[in-house]
Amino acid sequence: MPKTKDGDGTTVPQRLLAAATRLFADRGYDRTSVQEIVEAAGVTKGALYHYFGSKEDLLQEVYSRTLRLQQERLDAVAGADAPVTDRLRDAAADVVVTTLENLDDAVIFQRSMHQLSPQKLRQVRAERRHYHECFRALIEEGQTSGVFSTATPADLVVDYHFGSVHHLPAWYRADGPLSPRQIADHLAGLLMRALRP
């Protein structure tokens, strides 16, 4: 089945994901039916099962698409020809911005991660672990070269920063006093100060 585009240029999978994201965020994964998703997307059940296979596959993709974006951006930042301090600051800020720009995805995942099958949960955790390992490699690079303090193990530094990132859905409001970029700069600044020799 081709990924036909609608009048607004969106494909069937994009419409399904957008509808599922809205419904999962508003009502919860377990209280959203496949019928409600396909009606909101304006497609048939056959289209959903063709592209995603199941409602659970949609849930997994809601989380994985943001993580893929973050991984692509981290890879670009990590591979840039810049000092490790700049690369880590940029990576630390980017994960905050991309989380806030996809806040529904983060909320859905936190609420519904336990509803993934063990196999899908292992896959998602492996993707997230890979991201954290790439982020940790930047910290270790700076620690090895003497640019960052070695007083705190790199693993704990990663947990410190991502603890803040995972807590964002609990308090962030789009109409609050700080923009996503300002919050990202503050949190990245805290991380960089914590690593100062």
Rank of each mutant, 00 (worst) to 15 (best):
M1E: 13
T11L: 05
Q14F: 04
L17E: 02
L17N: 00
A20S: 01
T21K: 05
T21E: 01
R22Y: 07
D26G: 01
R27H: 07
R27Q: 08
Y29F: 14
Q35L: 11
E36Q: 14
I37M: 02
I37T: 00
V38L: 01
E39N: 14
A40V: 00
A41P: 06
K45N: 12
G46T: 11
A47D: 06
L48K: 00
L48V: 11
H50R: 15
Y51S: 00
G53P: 02
G53H: 08
S54L: 03
D57E: 13
L59F: 01
Q60T: 10
Q60Y: 15
S64E: 15
T66V: 12
L69K: 06
R73S: 11
L74W: 09
D75W: 11
D75N: 15
A76P: 06
V77C: 05
A80N: 09
P83D: 13
D86P: 09
A92D: 00
A92P: 09
V96T: 12
V96F: 02
E101K: 11
L103K: 10
D104K: 09
Q115E: 10
P118W: 12
Q119V: 14
R122A: 13
Q123A: 15
R125P: 01
R125A: 14
R129Q: 14
R136H: 07
A137W: 03
L138I: 10
G142N: 02
V147K: 05
F148M: 00
V158R: 11
Y160Q: 11
F162L: 12
H167L: 15
D175H: 04
G176D: 02
L178V: 08
L178I: 06
L178M: 13
D185N: 12
L187G: 05
A188H: 07
G189W: 02
L190Q: 06
M192N: 04
L195F: 08
P197L: 08
